[in-house]
Write a protein that binds this DNA or RNA. Structure first.
Lengths: 252, 252
DNA sequence: GCGATGCCTTGACAGGCATCAATGCCCCCG
DNA sequence: CGGGGGCATTGATGCCTGTCAAGGCATCGC
């Protein structure tokens, strides 16, 4: 027990330092194993806003973890139009889609000044081979990436613009709160155009929706600053909404 | 060389019998390794049309490979609306999204009479641990699932309905042809409503688009029978289209 | 063989969202 | 401090596509 607890603390310390907790935190691995993992991780210097971590088509060698600052990843259609795949907050992985063909399937672009940890994938596979729990965790993480995209597909294909925006706001709220920030007041790391692109909408529509939410007393928006005034109502908008009932006291 | 060639034949035979080639074909694994893999695979009896392979929320224990017949997988929104994630033709995998939470994130429904191979995932992980090449292949396959969904996201978010349909038809064409069927004449395994759902459209829109393609001389459609008359033009519709140029001789 | 059911097609219509355009704001930079 | 560019908001307009409705056509079951 004490050893376990000590190991865990070691992990938390090790990962806390580079926000790699998605990869190693849930594991019951020993300190020496962690050392193994730590050895292969590169910590990069801060990258300014508007730079590429990698581009679609670049040879795939590493996966990345945002350490501080937000990143967007996106693919480009042959006609040049872009689709944002996701926003990556500190602690979140990116780059796992490059394994298929050995080249990145999406590009990653910094939304603000960003620090990342880079994990060479072949080395990670080696280490994972020695640590079954890490192996399993790696598979789980890939599976989660699949699930995440499936949810987004559902959103783009079947949900109203209103609901899509509500879901995104809730997702950001939850993720910020998990990282120790306020769940109700935060700064959007991305531009309106990025939000619109991600949600499959026009920037103007996002603007109008935000206004509508504001007029309804659900949000207070000032530029990129968001204050969620009525979280239950926002949840209702994201979920059970459909008929225009003002939503009962909210429990679902 | 002769041993290699012999091994490869062994693999092909083994996989041919259950269409598992996506999992093992590209591997340089020995006959005994294949035996290991073969041992854990269950071959199911044929399943009639309209049955569930698994449902969203079911405990995740296995991944599946369609052996014959087509399957659709889809998720359900809280309000009951469905989003089809993908169609799975013989030889194609499904179920890889269940690992995250230990329950399937999507449901799988047979579109016609279907035979599947079932591969218990924990056993697969065991075997993979003993065969590094298989391990790598497993990760690659998951990565490909991610990539596939990213492409679909691009389609749903940024492409015109016309292009979405063209892309789907091309995809089916390619996949049928890879399986030894005609690339230009085939039967759609799914209903119009399924196509529409998958593409984020109304069934009527799909109908109208098919008619438009037909009037343009690109397709001949009769119920579920499709005959691609002008493959280059269909490619143009799927890709470079955008301006209404009748598309030059087509090379892209 | 006949009715019923589901699927597909076609038409009419309205509404929502994209598009275009103009203005304002803020921040960066000169 | 003043100019410029990017970003955000707001308004006007129109098209596309979803929705509703009806009809045709196969297949299946009785």
């Amino acid at each position: 027990m004490s050893t376990d607890s000590f190991s865990l603390r070691g992990i938390q310390r090790a990962c806390r330092s580079c926000s790699l907790h998605e990869l190693c935190l849930p594991l019951g691995v020993s300190d020496t194993d962690i050392d193994l993992l730590e050895k292969i991780v590169h910590r990069s210097r801060p990258l300014p806003r508007g730079k590429f971590l990698f581009r679609e088509g670049d040879p795939f060698t590493s996966i990345f973890v945002a350490r501080s600052g937000a990143v967007k990843s996106f693919t480009v259609a042959p006609d040049g139009s872009e689709q944002i795949i996701g926003f990556h907050l500190p602690g979140e992985l990116l780059g796992l889609d490059g394994l298929t063909e050995g080249v990145h399937a999406a590009s990653a672009h910094t939304l603000e000044t960003v620090s990342v940890c880079e994990v060479p994938f072949d080395r990670l596979e080696d280490v994972a081979r020695q640590i079954p729990a890490l192996q399993h965790q790696l598979l789980r993480l890939m599976s989660r990436e699949i699930t995440r995209r499936e949810e987004q597909l559902l959103s783009l294909g079947k949900q109203s613009p209103e609901r899509r925006l509500a879901v995104l706001l809730l997702s950001l709220s939850m993720r910020f709160s998990q990282r120790g920030y306020s769940a109700t007041r935060f700064l959007l790391p991305m531009a309106r155009l990025d939000i619109a692109n991600f949600l499959g909408l026009a920037a103007e529509t996002v603007s109008r929706l935000l206004r509508r939410f504001q007029d309804a007393g659900v949000l207070a928006v000032d530029g990129r600053a968001v204050d969620i005034l009525d979280l239950p109502e926002l949840r209702a908008l994201a979920g059970a909404e459909g008929s225009e009932e003002p939503a009962p006291p909210s429990c679902a």
